[in-house]
Amino acid sequence: MITKEKLTHLKQLEAESIHILREVAAEFSNPVMMYSVGKDSSVMLHIAMKAFAPAKPPFKFLHVDTLWKFHEMIEFRDNRAKELGFDLVVHSNPEGIAMDISPFKHGSKVHTDIMKTEALKQALTQGGYDAVIGGARRDEEKSRAKERIFSFRDKQHRWDPKNQRPELWNVYNTAIQKGESVRVFPISNWTELDVWQYIYLEGIPIPSLYFAKERPVVEYEGTKILVDDDRMPKELRDTAKMEMVRFRTLGCYPLTGAINSTASTLPEIIKEMLLSTSSEREGRLIDKDQIGSMEKKKIEGYF
């Protein structure tokens, strides 16, 4: 008889996430996992590989490529798909490509609307997915703190924050009509620290952009961004300086602020995070437009 044996908090979180993923696989006919290449996606992929072992995850992995992601992210994505053998689907908005949308020319709002929000809706509609698994965490942003783990979306992919289904115990309501869907957030209860600790303990591969290195950066709209290709306007590129920087989140390179750092190992990153005085989303230009902007974006269909 085992008495009073307890799982550590990370093992409890892991078990909870596995439970959620299996519930999705069992209850939905066409689920998909969003794979954005970042650290949270890496954790989700790792957990999905565990949940169905010795089999592979019984769903596809979807990457919405805005075509402005860091180059390294795309390489990393393709390598992981090959190594682990998961089923990767990549989608970019063809209308956005035709319009040659650029965050530098059209601004972050237009770029995000067309290449991210619209592209996501297109990919979900085309794929006909009834459950979309995402890596959002409740500690990231205030409106997310109130979102359910199984979060209902109507036929237009919209979220109604005032009319959410009650979610009790670990019993999830998965009932939907045709055309409706749910967003599922298996790592809702993880914090940024949990994610990093788990990556460290489990040895999960992540893109090297998270680690500090000498990189060419320019000052742009109040943050430092990486010179990742020559689509950056020349006058901006000409101001580039080499600095020791790293990224706390990964997204579109013109919209993702670098931080000055010397943290080149996981323990150093965790140390820096613990001693830091700003949240990880600070480097994300998307949140700061207006108060409650993430809540607005979610209502409109941005995950």
């Binding site: 093992k11 078990a15 565990k50 489990e202």
Partner: peptide, 11 residues
Amino acid sequence: AGDITESDREA
């Protein structure tokens, strides 16, 4: 499931 690793998928 928690014991599964990338190199040992049949633990």
